[in-house]
Write a protein that binds this DNA or RNA. Sequence first.
DNA 1: GTAACGATCCTC
DNA 2: AGGATCGTTACA
Length: 168
Amino acid sequence: MARLTANFFKQDALVLAPLLLGKKLVRVSDNGVKNEYVITEVEIYRGEEDLACHASKGRTQRTQVMYNSGGVLYVYLVYGMYWMLNIVTGEENNPQAILIRALEGTTGPGRVGKLLMLDKSFNTENLSDSKRIWLEDRPIIDTYKTSIRIGIDYASEEWRLKPWRFYY
DNA sequence: GTAACGATCCTC
DNA sequence: AGGATCGTTACA
C-alpha cells in the first residue's frame, strides 16, 4: 500500500495515535536489506502544557524538532543506552510527537530502537521521502486498548493519568 | 563548569 | 531491587 506522507502526519496526535496501530513500518538497512514491521503500541506526548512531554521545557536544541509540522522523526537517547523512536505530528509550532513503544513481536521502546538500528542521525528524518525508514498504509485497527503512559512518574497527576498509551 | 536525571532494560 | 551509561538540562 501507499507510503504515508505529510498530510497524514499533520493531524493532531490525539487523532493519529489510534490510526498508527497496525500500520506498516519499513526499514532499509545500510546493506540494502528491507524489513517490514507492524506498529502495535504507541504513546502521545502533546504540547508544552503536557508535563510528561519534553516540549514542556519549551523550544530547546533537543525539542525544536517537535515544533516542525508532522511527518519527521524525533529520535533521542534515553538512559545513555536506548534510542527512542517518535513521530512528530500536528501543525507547525504545535510541539507534539507519538512514541513508538512496540512493533509486532517486540516489547518496549528501547528494543524498537535496537531492532531498527536507530541512532542520532535519524533525528529530523523525513518520513515522506526517506530512503531508509517510512510508514505504509494498512487497514484501521478498530479494537484497541488504552492506559496511562509508562515511565513518566515525574509528571504531575493531571498529566500522569492521561490515557495516552494505545495498544492492541 | 558541574551535577542530577531520565518517555529503559537486564541481571540478581 | 539495583546497575549500566551518556546527552540534556538547570543552576552556580
